[in-house]
Each structure stands twice: as C-alpha cells, then as structure tokens.
Write a protein that binds this DNA or RNA. Sequence first.
DNA 1: ATGGTGACTCGCG
DNA 2: GCGCGAGCCACCA
Length: 130
Amino acid sequence: MEPGTPSFYEKVYKVVRCIPPGQVSSYGRIATMLGHPNAARAVGYALSALRHPNQDGYTSANVPWQRVVNSQGRISIRHREQAANKQADLLRAEGVTVDENGRIDLATHLWPGLHLIELDDILRNDPQEP
DNA sequence: ATGGTGACTCGCG
DNA sequence: GCGCGAGCCACCA
C-alpha cells in the first residue's frame, strides 16, 4: 500500500493516543470507531504488539496503552501479571480509580471518543508522528 | 494459501 | 456475577 496509508495497527495507535489522561476506552469501542465493530481482538493484539519494535516507531512509551480496558471496565491482560499491575499503576497515577480486582468505573472515566470529522483528521495526518 | 494466536464481546445458563 | 462457547479480525509462520 502507499506510504501514507496507515495499517490497522497504526490507526489503533493514533486513536489511542487521543485518549486524555484520566480517561479510558475499550477495545471494542476503538474497533467500532475504526469501522470494524467486531475487531476488538485485533485491537488488543495491536496494543500487545507495542512491546515489540515496529518500523513506525510506536512504542509503549508513546502510546497510552494503559487507557484501554475491556468492555466490562476491567484490566484484560491475562498471562502477564507484571504488565497488568503496571497498567493499574499507570492508571492510578493519572487519577483513575482501579480497585484490587482491576475494575474501573466506566461511568466515571469512559472516554466519549472521537467524532467522524476528528477521526478522519487524525488518521490522515497526525502532527505528532512518533 | 492456510491455520494458529490473542491485552475481545456478546449471549446463555 | 461467573464460566463457556461461538463469532470475528489482523498478523505471522
């Protein structure tokens, strides 16, 4: 594809970078915003991939991956307790209440999301490429 | 091309 | 509220 055409993963990263500190979204909501209502798993996979180096420069350091939880408002990292704890710590550090079971009150912290116009703009040219 | 792999979701019991 | 099964998707070997 053309150099300027973002892959699905890139789109995920760009949208996630729009989530303000103190707020959270879900894998499914991100997927829906990108026009793939059933691609929640792919979104999770995209964030998981942040720990590996990629040619676009997106890393766990420049993408606020911790602000994405599952639709139930719970931290969804399964097989890596260390990462799960880190996510909880990072969220608490920015003012999000996370109980001992890794639950977050979505009614309080859910990110409304982007409007179509904004989304379109973000995906076209992010003024802050990594 | 094909099948395996998840940081997912939703619907049922 | 919890566990299961089934559906869905982008990536990678």
